[in-house]
Computed example of a mutant assay.
Amino acid sequence: MTDIAILVGTESGNAQMVADALQEVLEEAHEVALHEEPDYDELDFSSRDVLIISCSTHGDGELPDNIIPLCDALKEQKPDLSHIRYGVVALGDQTYHQTFCQAGKDVDALLASLGAVRVGERFEVDACTQPLPDEDARDWVRDWAEQL
């Protein structure tokens, strides 16, 4: 059994809906903590092994407001995250092709720059073609968890 933290970056609630679905699936075999307002100090990255980030993109490719403080703290503190394995569910809209899933891509790049190792591929959700992102995310996380 693995202890998994799910971090949510959301504006409209879609990333939260996906995170809830991820939690439901993962709780069948793992300890899961869902962080709707992820806080750098509360997360204690030194004691974490596995993270999933469910992050939407809004505006012109920006991070959701609730996850900006966490990302800013990671950039400022620059902790060694080489002991962490992680997955990313990035939500976006392909009609904004230049910034499609940009926030999820940015969080992915930030974690990698701090030494964390992504497990599997980033799961990118397109609001135009995937009207039920939580269902697609359930399938993705089952495959992802097998790679841990």
Score class of each variant (00 low, 15 high):
Leu74Trp: 02
His83Met: 11
Thr95Trp: 11
Gln77Val: 14
Ile84Pro: 00
Ser82Trp: 05
Cys71Ile: 08
Asp80Val: 09
Asp72Leu: 11
Tyr96Arg: 08
Lys75Asn: 13
Arg85Gly: 13
Gly92Lys: 00
Asp93Asn: 12
Ile67His: 02
Gln98Pro: 06
Tyr96Thr: 07
His83Trp: 08
Leu91Cys: 04
Asp93Lys: 03
Leu70His: 11
Cys71Ser: 12
Gly92Trp: 00
Lys78Tyr: 00
Arg85Asp: 09
Pro69Met: 09
Cys71Arg: 03
Pro79Met: 03
Val89Cys: 06
Gly92Gln: 00
Ala90Val: 04
Val88Leu: 10
Thr95Val: 14
Leu74Asn: 05
Leu81Asp: 02
Gly92Asn: 03
Tyr86Trp: 03
Arg85Phe: 02
Lys78Ile: 01
Pro69Leu: 12
Asp72Phe: 01
Leu91Thr: 00
Ile68Tyr: 05
Leu74Gly: 08
Gln77Arg: 14
Gln98Thr: 15
Gln77Tyr: 06
Leu74Glu: 02
Asp93Ala: 07
Ile84Met: 09
Val89Leu: 07
Asp80Trp: 07
Arg85His: 15
Glu76Trp: 01
Glu76Cys: 04
Asp80Pro: 04
Pro64Gln: 04
Gly87Val: 08
Asp93Pro: 06
Pro64Ser: 00
Tyr96Cys: 11
Asp93Cys: 04
Leu91Gln: 10
Thr95Met: 13
Ile84His: 11
Gln94Tyr: 05
Ala73Thr: 12
Asn66Gly: 07
Leu91Tyr: 00
Ile68Pro: 00
Lys78Arg: 13
Leu81Trp: 03
Ile68Phe: 04
Ser82Gly: 07
Asp65His: 12
Asp65Val: 08
Lys75Leu: 12
Leu81Ala: 09
Asp65Cys: 04
Pro79Gly: 02
Ser82Lys: 13
Lys78Glu: 14
Leu74Ile: 05
Ala90Ile: 03
Pro69Thr: 14
His97Ala: 14
Gln94Cys: 15
Asp65Thr: 11
His97Gly: 10
Ser82Phe: 04
Gly92Phe: 00
Asp93Gly: 13
Ala90Gln: 03
His83Glu: 13
Leu74Lys: 07
Gly87Met: 01
Pro69Asn: 13
Lys75Arg: 14
Gln98His: 14
Tyr96Met: 10
Val89Thr: 10
Leu91Lys: 00
Asn66Tyr: 01
Thr95Asn: 15
Cys71Met: 10
Ala90Asp: 01
Ile67Asn: 01
Leu81Arg: 02
Gly92Pro: 05
Ile67Arg: 04
Leu70Gly: 09
Asn66Glu: 08
Asp65Ile: 08
Ala73Asn: 07
His97Asn: 15
Gly87Glu: 02
Asp93Glu: 11
Gln77Ser: 10
Val88Asp: 03
Gly92Ser: 02
Ser82Ala: 10
Asp72Arg: 12
Leu74Gln: 10
Lys75Cys: 09
Ala73Arg: 14
Gln98Ala: 14
